[in-house]
Design a binder for these strands. Structure first.
Length: 742
DNA sequence: AAAAAAG
């Protein structure tokens, strides 16, 4: 409960008073005041309501039965014969009330996560609803159990969401006609729209092809089923392919031969193998299957080059050089890539890579004097108009790697043209979380502005009015999250038809279930043959679905030598008793320096933040149950150093950059090695040192071992107990000489 | 389980 800073002990104490105190009549008032007042300013009606409910509930327990009827009425709130109630019943009432409050919060929580932001502002309406709901919540505990009954109740977890949300939402002016009419139009289309009609409208042989692709999409879903077969070796796959009617239809017969037999095989086996020593190690990690998806799709490439509307891309695919790029082998789980060694980059400047002087200067101001390896690798390729897949470990400067050349490209594409009012965006950058989108914009915006381009953020959780307004004026680069972007597209307020560059940050994550489909739909709205850039620290074949459909002969880069030895992050695993967990966590975060704690669920994140707070360690939480204002604010609190502890779900696992987090604590071990890599990547950024500690119980050791293997991380497993020196050491509270002597 | 849209 980040919001309510009062120690948990505080409120019970307040409730405690009336039991012994003589101020009985004020009980309800205070009760109501404590809640409602804190929330949105006490309203008499609500106070009355609650008081009433309280009376009723307390009735059976209280002694004064004969007096009950009278006190049931709100008008009788003040009527409290001393003999009607003794201290004891109240005590019980208090216990129930407290439980009821907890229940109310968790329920409210859940309810709010559904309809979180919008309704509050409208009008009085929602509030009345809430008022009428509350008493019911309070009743609950008498009948049911709290879902989350723990010794450390997550009591307040709901509290912060109340009230504080309300003031946040500015109501946009009603637009009685605009959206409504759009809606209606769209509404009709929506069901079957699925992008088809529009696309065909827009013509270009492209569309047809894509439509074709789309009908094939099930392939991806099939992949699972296909896998075992693909596993074995390359042959069966080819047979499969030729058997499939669809593929043949699409002229697979012409194309595939070239790409599979000639190109692919040769490149994959002869050329690249030798050069990619890294891959050996990597392959172990990979599940063997998967290559198939890529190959089956290759034919499209040729289709695309033919229909491609973008000269630069045609140039590229036409250039023999492109064929020599060792980069388009996308076969194993881990993409095979041309690796760029950091040393190769020495002495190269951003200017050398082809960026204009304004941009170079801005980069310098941002603290990027000379390019990191991943930047040196990808910037020229992006500038050349190629599709790029790039893998660079966390904190290695990926944002600039795609952002700077993206701005340059957009600038070039507009050279000589006047920036029109209401122009549609030329580039879009998609990120998996709002915080990341915001952060990317913070990096890109100055770069863009330095050359006179405009960016805007399009993400959910905030009123869309401002975003739409910006789009109406005209922006060049859109940075956002999939949900709102698609929403605005569907509303006809965002037009991507002129969007020539699309970037997916955390691309592998964006390809996960639930994310990939909106992303695909959005990408289909971009201009034909638009350039696609996929970046992630854990880029692997999971991006196959997108690569197959959207990328043409992509360049794939990674940075050589990115192993644990070259990392600045120290990893440790603490094997603990579950009963010690809470206290160990508190002990771990009680330290100097910024600490990021990862929890698996939102509720647990809240609970931990509250727990730390109660222990006197200021902490805030970050997760999807918070409204966007709180999310932003809580993250900012860590960034600014107002708190040193942030407890987050995996919403903060990827991409989020806070300068000096020196300890990452995983209160819950992650399930995936990628998650581990990303979470731990919140520390040790840009060469700084950092420490990652993961708490597990004995039973989890084996799973953890396997996970670390996949992550290619060596971490000692250490048994730790509550008052262990180990904890002191990890927290950085090593006893000083003074401590030892005293 | 979490994330991503709600005038």
């Amino acid at each position: 409960m980040p919001k309510n800073k009062k120690p948990r002990g505080g409120r019970p104490a307040a409730n405690f008073e009336p039991r012994y105190g003589a101020k009985k009549t004020s009980f309800h008032d205070r009760h109501a005041g404590a809640r409602d007042g804190a929330r949105d300013g006490a309203r008499p009606e609500r106070g009355a309501f609650r008081a009433d409910a309280g009376e009723r509930r307390s009735a059976p327990a209280a002694g004064g039965y004969d007096r009950r009827p009278g006190s049931r009425s709100a008008g009788h709130r003040g009527y409290r014969p001393a003999e009607a109630e003794s201290g004891a019943p109240k005590q019980r009432w208090n216990a129930q009330e407290r439980a009821g409050r907890d229940e109310a919060r968790s329920i409210r929580n859940r309810a709010e996560s559904g309809r979180r932001e919008a309704p509050h502002h409208r009008d009085e309406r929602p509030r009345f609803d809430e008022r009428s709901e509350r008493p019911r919540f309070n009743d609950r505990p008498t009948t049911g159990r709290r879902f989350d009954e723990r010794s450390r109740p997550s009591t307040g977890s709901g509290a912060p969401y109340r009230g504080a949300e309300r003031p946040r939402f500015e109501r946009d002016g009603q637009r009685p006609t605009g959206p409504g009419t759009y809606r209606d139009d769209r509404g009709g289309q929506r069901p079957q729209r699925d992008d088809r009609p529009q696309r065909d409208d827009r013509g270009f042989g492209d569309r047809a092809n894509r439509a074709g692709d789309r009908t094939e999409r099930p392939r991806f879903n099939d992949r699972g089923a296909d896998r075992p077969r693909f596993d074995r070796d390359e042959r069966p796959r080819r047979d499969d392919r030729s058997e499939r009617p669809q593929r043949n239809d699409r002229g697979a017969a012409e194309r595939p031969e070239r790409s599979y037999d000639a190109d692919r095989a040769r490149r994959a086996f002869d050329r690249d193998r030798a050069q990619r020593s890294i891959e050996g190690g990597r392959d172990e990690r990979s599940r063997p299957s998967t290559g198939g998806a890529y190959r089956t799709d290759r034919p499209r490439r040729d289709d695309r080059t033919a229909r491609d509307t973008r000269p630069s891309r045609n140039d590229w695919s036409a250039k023999p050089k492109a064929a020599f790029e060792p980069t388009d082998d996308v076969v194993h789980e881990r993409l095979e890539a041309k690796s760029v060694a950091a040393v190769e980059v020495d002495g190269v400047s951003f200017g050398d890579l082809g960026l204009g002087s304004n941009i170079v200067e801005t980069l310098a101001n941002l603290g990027a004097a000379s390019p990191f390896a991943i930047q040196a690798a990808s910037i020229p390729a992006v500038l050349a108009g190629r599709d790029v897949l790039a893998r660079g470990r966390t904190g290695s400067g990926k944002t600039i790697a795609f952002g700077a050349p993206l701005v340059e490209n957009v600038l070039k594409s507009q050279a000589g043209k006047r920036r029109e009012f209401g122009r549609s965006p030329r580039a879009i950058i998609l990120a998996p979380t709002r915080e990341l989108a915001l952060q990317i914009d913070r990096t890109i915006q100055p770069i863009a502005r330095s050359v006179g381009l405009f960016t805007t953020q399009i993400y959910g959780g905030v009123p869309q009015g401002r975003q739409v307004g910006a789009l109406k004026k005209g922006v060049d680069i859109v940075i956002g999250t999939p949900g709102r972007v698609e929403d605005l597209i569907n509303q006809g307020k965002l037009d991507l038809s002129d969007c020539r560059i699309a970037v997916l940050d955390e691309a592998d994550h964006m390809c996960e279930l639930g994310f990939v489909e909106p992303v695909q739909r959005i990408l289909r709205h971009t201009a034909d043959g638009s350039q696609k850039l996929l970046f992630s620290a854990t880029l692997d074949r999971e991006v196959a679905a997108l690569v197959d459909e959207f990328l043409v002969d992509p360049a794939v880069y990674e940075v050589a030598g990115e192993d644990q030895e070259s990392s600045t992050i120290e990893h440790r695993v603490l094997v603990i008793e579950h009963r010690d967990k809470a206290d160990i966590l508190t002990s771990l975060v009680d330290r100097q320096g910024k600490t990021l704690v990862f929890a698996r669920t939102r509720a647990y994140a809240d609970m931990l933040a509250e727990q730390f707070d109660d222990a006197g360690i200021p902490a805030v939480s970050l997760h999807g149950d918070l409204n966007q204002a709180k999310r932003t604010r809580n993250l900012e609190r860590l960034t600014s150093g107002r708190v040193n502890v942030l407890v987050a779900t995996d919403v903060a696992a990827r991409g989020i950059h806070v300068d000096d987090i020196d300890l990452v604590v995983q209160a819950d071990a992650p399930d995936e090695y990628k998650t581990y890599l990303h979470r731990s990547g919140r520390t040790g950024r840009a060469g700084r040192s950092g420490r990652v500690v993961t708490l597990i119980t004995r039973q989890r050791q084996r799973r953890m071992t396997e996970l670390l293997q996949r992550a290619e991380i060596d971490a000692p497993f250490e048994n730790a107990r509550l008052d262990d020196d180990l904890i002191e050491e990890i927290a950085g509270r090593v006893p000083t000489a003074a401590d030892l002597t005293s």
